Computed example of a mutant assay.
Amino acid sequence: MDKLGSFISSAETLAATLGTSGAGQIDRGNGKMVNWSFKGQLMGFEWKYIGICVDQATGETATAVKQSRDGSIEHSMRDLFQKLAARNAL
């Protein structure tokens, strides 16, 4: 069991050095910013990415867990814009 814990710890350390996280922001119009970020991590025995998008004007957030970092960002962004549209906040 110690070897498994050591493996997981080594994988997380390696992932941190390989740049499996990132962040940025986009202007969705009229100076309203959306912050996005992603983080890769081991979930069970699979590597997954968690994408998070936050609309600064409304505080609305959306997250997505996917097998690719681009997919996690794309899906969380899509979900965020769907939530904003439902609130007539676009």
Results as ranks from 00 to 15, higher is better:
Asp2Gly: 15
Lys3Tyr: 08
Leu4Asp: 06
Leu4Glu: 09
Ser6Pro: 01
Phe7Gln: 11
Phe7Ser: 12
Phe7Trp: 07
Ile8Arg: 14
Ile8Glu: 07
Ile8Lys: 14
Ile8His: 05
Ser9Gln: 14
Ser10Gly: 14
Ser10Trp: 03
Ala11Arg: 12
Glu12Leu: 07
Glu12Trp: 05
Thr13Asn: 13
Thr13Trp: 05
Leu14Glu: 13
Leu14Asp: 12
Ala15Asp: 03
Ala16Trp: 01
Leu18Lys: 14
Leu18Ile: 02
Leu18Phe: 03
Leu18Ser: 03
Gly19Trp: 04
Gly19Ala: 09
Thr20Leu: 14
Thr20Pro: 00
Thr20Gln: 09
Ser21Val: 03
Gly22Ser: 11
Gly22Cys: 12
Ala23Cys: 09
Gly24Thr: 12
Gly24Val: 10
Ile26Cys: 09
Ile26Ala: 08
Asp27Gly: 05
Asp27His: 05
Arg28Gln: 13
Gly29Pro: 03
Gly29Tyr: 04
Gly29Gln: 04
Gly29Ala: 07
Gly29Asn: 05
Gly29Cys: 06
Asn30His: 12
Asn30Lys: 13
Gly31Arg: 03
Lys32Leu: 02
Lys32Asn: 11
Met33Pro: 00
Met33Gln: 08
Met33Trp: 00
Met33Val: 07
Val34Ser: 03
Val34Met: 03
Val34Gly: 02
Asn35Ala: 08
Trp36Leu: 02
Ser37Gln: 13
Lys39Glu: 12
Lys39Trp: 04
Lys39Arg: 14
Gly40Thr: 13
Gly40Ser: 10
Gly40Ile: 07
Gln41Arg: 08
Leu42Thr: 12
Met43Glu: 11
Met43Cys: 09
Gly44Ile: 09
Gly44Leu: 08
Phe45Ala: 10
Phe45Pro: 01
Phe45Lys: 11
Phe45Asp: 08
Phe45Ile: 13
Trp47Ile: 04
Trp47Asp: 04
Tyr49Asn: 10
Tyr49Trp: 08
Tyr49Ser: 11
Tyr49Met: 07
Tyr49Ile: 10
Gly51Tyr: 02
Gly51Val: 10
Gly51Glu: 01
Cys53Tyr: 01
Cys53Gln: 01
Cys53Glu: 00
Val54Gln: 08
Asp55Ile: 08
Asp55Ser: 11
Asp55Tyr: 01
Asp55Asn: 08
Gln56Gly: 01
Gln56Ile: 07
Gln56Glu: 13
Gln56Phe: 00
Ala57Tyr: 01
Ala57Asp: 10
Thr58Gln: 05
Thr58Gly: 08
Gly59Thr: 14
Gly59Val: 13
Gly59Ser: 14
Glu60Trp: 00
Ala62Lys: 01
Ala62Val: 02
Ala62Glu: 01
Thr63Arg: 05
Ala64Pro: 05
Ala64Val: 10
Ala64Cys: 13
Ala64Glu: 07
Ala64Asn: 07
Ala64His: 07
Val65Pro: 00
Val65Cys: 10
Val65Lys: 00
Val65Asp: 02
Val65Met: 09
Val65Gln: 06
Lys66Leu: 14
Lys66Tyr: 06
Gln67Gly: 15
Ser68Asp: 15
Ser68Arg: 07
Asp70Pro: 01
Ser72Asp: 04
Ser72Ala: 15
His75Gly: 04
His75Trp: 02
Ser76Trp: 05
Ser76Cys: 09
Ser76Ala: 12
Met77Tyr: 09
Met77Asp: 00
Arg78Tyr: 04
Arg78Trp: 00
Asp79Gln: 14
Phe81Pro: 01
Phe81His: 09
Gln82Ser: 15
Gln82Met: 10
Lys83Phe: 03
Lys83Glu: 06
Leu84Cys: 05
Leu84His: 03
Ala85Lys: 15
Ala86Trp: 02
Asn88Val: 10
Ala89Thr: 06
Leu90Val: 10
